[in-house]
């Protein structure tokens, strides 16, 4: 577990360093994820070693958003007088975005002949 945690942290660290040094808009952990994907593809047997730790963290992914969510409650007032307008925009646009993305996926998958299996 220590080794796989170390690998996860090392990828994140390398990602943060790359984001800072190259001035990228993409956050460090996302670059770290791509590095990790490269390692998984390059090293046979690596996936089996990091799997318990990575899956343990991912199984509780929702928990990790709780502290930020609590912070947001205190800032709800920053929505100000436009709160209702902003909330309507947010809910409707999220519904539209999910529908548009899912429909585009299904449509193009059908056209390209890459069906579900």
């Amino acid at each position: 577990m220590i080794h796989s945690l170390l690998v996860l942290l090392a990828c994140q660290l390398a990602g943060e360093a790359a984001a800072r040094l190259l001035g990228l808009a993409v956050p460090g952990p996302v670059i770290g994820m791509l590095l990790m994907l490269g390692l998984l593809a390059a090293l046979p047997g690596f996936a089996a070693r990091v799997r318990p730790t990575a899956e343990g963290i991912l199984a509780n992914l929702s928990l990790l958003f709780v502290p930020a969510g609590v912070g947001v409650v205190g800032h709800i007032s920053t929505l100000g007088t436009q709160a209702v307008a902003l909330l309507v925009a947010l809910v409707v646009s999220t519904v539209l975005a999910i529908a548009a993305a899912a429909a585009a996926f299904v449509l193009v998958a059908r056209l390209a002949g890459v069906g579900d299996d």
Partner: peptide
């Protein structure tokens, strides 16, 4: 952060 990296799996 580590969770985002874990998404590679």
């Amino acid at each position: 952060g580590p969770a985002t990296v874990s998404l590679a799996l």
